[in-house]
Amino acid sequence: MIANSVNTNAGAMVALQNLNATNTELQISQGRINTGKKIGSAKDNGAIWAIAENQSAIANSLNAVRDSLQRGQSTIDVGLAAGDTVVDLLNKMKEKALAAADTSITSASRATLAADFTTLRDQITKAVSNAKFSGANIVDGSTDQMSFLSNDSGDAFTVVARNLSLQGIGLDSDSTFATAADASAMISTITTALSTATNKLASLGTNSAGLDAHLTFINKLQDSLDAGVGNLVDADLAKESARLTALQTKQQLGTQALSIANQAPQSVLSLFG
Results as ranks from 00 to 15, higher is better:
T189V: 09
A108K: 13
A213L: 12
L69S: 00
Q55C: 07
T176V: 15
L194T: 05
S107A: 15
T179K: 09
V159N: 06
V159F: 01
D152S: 07
A242C: 12
S147M: 03
L247P: 13
K250H: 10
A100S: 14
L204F: 09
N91V: 04
M146C: 11
L113Q: 15
T75L: 04
N4A: 03
R110A: 14
D122C: 11
D44Q: 00
A261C: 00
D122G: 07
K200Q: 15
D122N: 12
A82R: 15
G230K: 08
T196I: 04
A213S: 14
L211A: 07
M13L: 05
I33K: 12
G141W: 00
N137I: 00
A238L: 12
S56W: 00
F117D: 13
L215Y: 14
S267D: 08
A3Q: 09
K43M: 01
S129Y: 10
K94S: 13
D67T: 06
V78E: 10
I124R: 00
N207R: 15
Q145H: 07
L253S: 04
A47G: 03
S203R: 12
Q55F: 10
V268P: 01
A227M: 14
K92G: 08
A42R: 03
A202F: 14
I39W: 00
R32K: 06
S188R: 11
A238K: 14
S270C: 03
G72A: 02
Q263F: 07
F217H: 13
D77K: 14
R162A: 08
T106F: 12
Q70V: 05
N60K: 08
T35R: 02
R110Q: 08
A12I: 05
T85G: 03
R243K: 12
N199I: 09
A10L: 03
G273F: 07
Q73A: 14
A42Q: 09
T75V: 05
S142K: 00
N151L: 02
T206R: 12
F117N: 02
S41T: 11
L269H: 01
G31W: 07
N20M: 02
L201D: 05
A193L: 03
A100Q: 11
F148I: 00
A59W: 02
L204P: 01
T192Q: 08
S208W: 04
R121G: 13
D144L: 09
T125Q: 10
A238H: 13
A99M: 09
A183T: 02
A202V: 09
L120V: 03
M93Q: 14
K250I: 15
T119S: 11
L149F: 09
N199Y: 05
V14W: 09
G141Q: 02
T179D: 06
D172M: 13
A242G: 08
V139D: 15
G254E: 13
R66M: 10
S104R: 08
Q222C: 13
M93E: 10
R243N: 10
L89I: 05
L80S: 12
N137A: 15
G40Q: 03
S270W: 05
N54H: 01
A257P: 11
S165G: 10
